[in-house]
Nucleic acid binder design. Structure first.
Lengths: 334, 334
DNA sequence: CTGAAAGCGCTTACAG
DNA sequence: CTGAAAGCGCTTACAG
């Protein structure tokens, strides 16, 4: 750990250029009243010494923080959008992977303020009102992506059209002639799951098709959830002829459960997923799924965060971006 | 864009606490010569005003930058390790997704210096010597993860044991009694591909099994590469009875190509992948694959970057972390 | 324990 | 175009 010689200051540069500190400062701040020759001399010296101005440091400093639970495909898609929009806006994005939930404590919000962030984007989890109080005193805005609960506190949020997505996916299966359509959802308490489930119900009711309570399961969004949940559904009599799985992972799990029972997908069972992640095109059969605009959600979240940080009032507290049905091979006419 | 009232300064705090600026500064810097009562009063005022000290700003400021080409599962796994180790070390990690290659130009290195980073971690791509010159003048170290080429310039790098991984995967297939083993590699020029391929060759030669030139293909690491490359291999006569695919994605593509030709995996064709990404456990059959320690590579890269930033000399220029054979369902005795 | 004072790094209005 | 000088935000050695 050899002590690095002290950080370059303006006076070092001024001395080697043979000008005053004031002149160097002007070059640094792009003021017009500097002779071209002087300017370029100072510029090259600044670069040679690797000088970093405090203001540059503030911009290059991570000004926005994005927090995710992990970097699985779903979160990674959103983060990619945040980073892309950050690059366009010229702000750095710091990434944090939460070990504990955001609701862990007040230290969370204090640390954010202490780190000098200008805004925070958090996915799924949203801050408590006590945390929000600390953040708002420090004028540090928060944007939540696809909130887990209905916040009873005023936070801006961005999400996909979960209700419409559930509706569209179910209508697709109804249009194919299915009526024994099961719902394989995410965690029961998650807002995204509830909205998708009500979309499913709305489609069924509009079509005059009764929803059997045992056809609705909410194990979770992961692969094993899909294997187990779909397994239980397929063991019912009469068994469903179609499953609307609310994530691609659980849809892949459902296909696995079907194959394990000697059922062919899509001939014996149609499966529709949700997300349109990379795996959707890599399975056999390829997944019919509801595309979530992950990247776009990330971009919108970052822009909203910057507008809030600039002191703008945002009209709408929650913005939803459209989901889209992508028809591939896993759904077929009944 | 309502102009936010100017940033809180120490004098604001001092005024409301009824003490001098010097005392506030001492509280901020955790000096011992402050009365407990004064200290806590000042502390609470600092928090109420959301004051951010310049030094805190510097630490919370993103001090390390990690650059990836995209956030696919492979890169995301590494980034997760970098972020985790960053959190442990108390430094922020800024993430950048390269649109253009690092070798894009000198602006790249200049921007990094201007942003005040303390180190850069870049994956696959590595800087040119001109870029490195700028970075080293600014004492900004670089760590490359799994470098694409053998850098002829002195950079620290971290990677998996590619050669040993190729050797182990091939030995596994040889031990199962296969001899018609094909190699389905990444891009021909990638260092990781070359090392894995030589591992494959070494295993074959040690076992006295000839390597047929037509059994070696290097289309790339993605899913379509696997579909096409494996398709071509399976159309050869005699066809291979085993394929060593050097990524999980291309292994899944190979399974797809096999199924499309009426071949069962693993009964008619054994497939071994590389990475042990999430999909490896989600395919049917589940993938036998070489686990890459992505998270650990990220952690090591960050620690190396911090040591370099602290002025330490690192002994070894390139460190390799062990890969590990994970046997699942896609490989079977010939 | 406290704060006046010196000092550092930086910026900027202004005199030349 | 340049720089002396005033000033800002912060820190710290030191007198009380």
């Amino acid at each position: 750990m050899s002590a690095s010689p002290r950080r370059t200051t303006l006076s070092t540069i001024a001395a080697s250029a043979g000008v005053s500190v004031a002149t160097v400062s002007k070059v640094l701040n792009d003021r017009s009243d500097v002779a071209p020759a002087t300017r370029s001399l100072v510029r090259s010296l600044l670069e040679q010494h690797g000088y970093v101005s405090p203001s540059a440091r503030r911009n290059g400093a991570a000004t926005i923080e994005v927090q995710v639970d992990d970097l699985c495909a779903y979160f990674a898609g959103i983060v990619a959008g945040v980073v892309e929009a950050g690059a366009d806006a010229g702000v750095s994005v710091a990434i944090t992977i939460n070990k504990s939930p955001v609701s862990g404590g007040l230290a969370w919000s204090r640390d954010l303020v202490a780190a000098g962030r200008r805004a925070v984007i958090t996915i799924a989890d949203h801050p408590t009102s006590a945390q929000l109080a600390i953040l708002s005193r420090a004028r540090l805005p928060v944007v939540v992506i696809d909130p887990l609960n209905l916040p009873n506190i005023p936070v801006s949020s961005v999400g996909p059209t979960n209700f419409a997505g559930g509706l569209t996916a179910t209508q697709h299966l109804l249009a194919l002639g299915h009526s024994r359509i099961a719902y394989l959802g995410g965690p029961a308490t998650a807002l995204s799951n509830q909205a998708r489930m009500h979309g499913y119900r709305a489609a069924m009711e509009s079509a005059g098709v009764p929803v059997l309570p045992e056809y609705v399961r909410t194990p979770g969004y992961c692969y094993p959830d899909g294997v187990e949940g779909a397994g239980a559904l397929l063991d019912l009599r009469p068994a469903p002829t179609a499953i609307f799985a609310t994530s691609d992972e659980s849809a892949v799990g459902a296909i696995h459960a079907a194959k394990a029972r000697g059922l062919r997908v899509p001939e014996d069972l149609s499966v529709v997923g949700f997300d349109d992640s990379e795996i959707a095109s890599m399975t056999s059969p390829k997944l019919t799924t509801m595309r979530q605009p992950l990247r776009e959600m990330g971009i919108l979240a970052l822009r909203t965060a910057l507008r809030l940080a600039a002191g703008e009032r945002i009209e709408s507290a929650h913005v939803e971006l459209a989901t889209e049905l992508v028809i591939r091979e896993s759904s077929l006419a009944a």
